[in-house]
């Protein structure tokens, strides 16, 4: 419970910090708007040629775009800023203060930053999702709601673990920003349901960079495609990735030498 209290306190500081930079809110709104417009134009182009894409109808794909936007907001608000800060601190050897605190170091480095204005994306994503569900004439269904939220949570967790693994590599290889940049490119592939990609790409997006699980599984839940097997698979992969991330992080910490003075 101390962990939750700690996370809350950091969240509070993060939000206080963000209020110092109100201009960022307007920039963020503009960015969200541009990303949304690009996404919608893409969908329009596809559906001017065909009525379904690998079995997904237009409103269903709009739902995928919604989930993609929500997840992007979560990553931008809570995951990416923490990992970027960690990467810099490992490189410069300034992780010291985080490690001299009587709290779990992994928890500490994962909650220190919070970009409030990025949650504009989360909000926008939910609006898109509601519009899409409305077009699909969606009826509330307990399994779908549970599946959606749990899959969203597991997806965020998997992407967090993926980032932490990549970042921990910085303990051995000093420059990992390039690998991290690669993630952004791969994440963009999540805009479309994973089923439309060729097998090799589908597998790498699923297991190497868990974008498929993070975006496709919640979308499947909402469109009645989610099976119990997939859900259990997602759960297993989350636990597995978390364990791996924790192990690599701990080994990395042992390797941390910190730049002198």
């Amino acid at each position: 419970m101390k962990g939750i209290k700690l996370a809350y306190n950091f969240l509070r500081i993060g939000i206080l910090n963000e209020f110092q930079y109100r201009a960022n809110l307007y920039i963020q709104i503009l960015q969200t708007f541009i990303a949304l417009a690009t996404g919608l134009i893409g969908l329009q182009l596809v559906f001017s040629q065909t009525t379904d894409l690998a079995g997904w109808s237009q409103p269903e794909l709009l739902a995928v775009l919604g989930v993609f936007t929500i997840m992007g907001g979560i990553i931008g608000a809570a995951i990416q800023p923490n990992m970027e800060r960690l990467m810099g601190e490992i490189r410069e050897g300034t992780l010291d203060y985080a490690l001299t605190k009587p709290a779990d170091a992994q928890l500490l480095i994962s909650v220190r930053e919070f970009r409030l204005w990025q949650t504009v994306d989360v909000l926008t994503g939910f609006i898109i999702l509601i519009i899409a569900l409305n077009q699909m004439q969606w009826a509330v269904n307990l399994w779908a709601v549970f599946g959606f939220f749990s899959a969203l949570l597991m997806g965020a967790m998997m992407i967090y673990c993926f980032w932490l693994i990549i970042t921990s590599i910085a303990f051995w290889v000093i420059r990992v920003e390039e690998i991290a940049n690669l993630f952004e490119g791969l994440y963009a592939a999540g805009r479309w349901p994973i089923g439309i990609y060729p097998n090799w790409l589908r597998y790498s997006l699923t297991f190497l960079v868990p974008v498929a699980f993070a975006i496709s599984v919640p979308s499947e839940a909402l469109t009645g495609r989610l099976t119990l097997e997939t859900w259990l698979g997602a759960l297993a992969l989350t636990v597995f990735l978390f364990t791996v991330a924790r192990i690599i992080w701990s080994f990395g910490l042992k390797n941390y030498s910190g730049a002198s003075a």
Binding site: N9, I13, Y21, T94, Y97
Partner: peptide, 23 residues
């Protein structure tokens, strides 16, 4: 040569954080 207080916030806010970290 290092600082651990939040750069943009009054020190009081950072002190509160220390309180939470050290219970």
């Amino acid at each position: 040569n290092r600082n651990q207080l939040s750069w943009d916030l009054p020190a009081l806010d950072s002190f509160d954080l220390q309180r939470a970290i050290y219970s």
